[in-house]
Design a protein around this nucleic acid. Structure first.
Length: 284
DNA sequence: CTGCAGAAC
DNA sequence: GTTCTGCAG
């Protein structure tokens, strides 16, 4: 074994001395929040079995509020910078999420089959490629929403790619998305209210909010009135295309439609400015 | 080529 | 599970 240099030894001693728990036992009280909720918890979701319509699920890779009776999340929130991205291949292991409370219906990987709707990721597969475990976590069905194929593969896919391109240029992003309403139009046409024998509601609209920051500490105080915020609200309809820019709205409009309180960790004055503005920046 | 998938076996 | 196909960019 190679001997440690004196400075390295001192660092180890300091690290041990400042750690309030022994390093070889699990933390008995995991933090109640995560980096993914740095800018807030839009619905005050909690991991309480008595709150089936606003149930908090925290994963290392993202955080979400799950609606048991709709079978889809109310919102999903995640942090994106290039430390989340790597070479892990797409896992494609769509599956039920057994982290839900006992007795709750679990949407299955096959639940959308033949519905005319995609198993649309909220937190995208391609945003979580650092490790196989990270990528696999995005395929839990609690991270899915039945989405019209063109909405998923064109509208959202283009915006997701744009977000990753911003990460590639040294940005750090906080992203939230979700859906609301009932009744979408998939590849089979018409309007579909639910699938999977009523266990999964097909939403009418899908929304996404992107906060773009320079790389830095994970701190809501870094959001200023000059921070770029992109918000879109698009129909869950297979007639739409790749031009996500045309669906830009204010964050206020999404809050009005959903009842959520977005960016609640940001100071009220900054929120007021950012949430009333509609992005007019580049789309590619 | 990658990323979004669905369908067949 | 694996393999194949389709679409957009």
């Amino acid at each position: 074994m190679k001997l440690l240099t004196k400075p390295a030894y001192l660092l180890l001693v300091l690290a041990a001395a400042t750690s309030c728990d022994s390093s070889n036992s699990p933390d008995p009280t995991p933090k109640a929040t995560s980096v993914h909720l740095t800018l807030g918890n839009p619905s005050g979701a909690v991991a309480d079995v008595k709150k089936p319509t606003n149930y908090l699920l925290l994963k290392p890779q993202y955080a979400l509020s799950y609606h048991r009776d709709r079978g889809i999340p109310n919102w999903v929130s995640w942090h994106l910078d290039n430390t989340w991205r790597g070479a892990a291949p797409r896992q494609d292991d769509f599956r039920a999420d057994d982290a839900l409370p006992e007795g709750w219906y679990q949407v299955q990987g096959s639940s959308y089959q033949g519905s005319g709707f995609d198993r649309g990721h909220n937190c995208p597969s391609a945003d979580r490629t650092k490790t196989v475990a990270d990528n696999s976590a995005t395929f839990l069905m609690t991270n899915m929403t039945p989405q019209a194929p063109r909405s998923n593969q064109q509208t959202w896919a283009r915006l997701e790619e744009y977000c990753r391109s911003l990460a590639d240029t040294g940005k750090e992003l906080y992203i939230l998305c979700g859906s609301y309403g009932k009744g979408g139009s998939g590849s089979d046409g018409g309007v579909t209210q639910t699938i999977d024998e009523g266990h999964v509601t097909v939403p009418r609209r899908c929304w996404k909010v992107v906060i773009i920051l320079p790389i830095g500490s994970n701190d809501a105080a870094r959001v200023s009135t000059g921070t770029r915020v992109i918000a879109i609200d698009s129909p869950n309809d297979n007639s739409i295309g790749s031009n996500w820019g045309q669906y830009r709205v204010s964050v206020d409009a999404i809050e009005a439609a959903t009842g959520l309180d977005l960016l609640s960790a940001v100071s009220p004055a900054v929120q007021a400015k950012l949430e009333s503005t509609v992005d007019a920046g580049p789309t590619e």
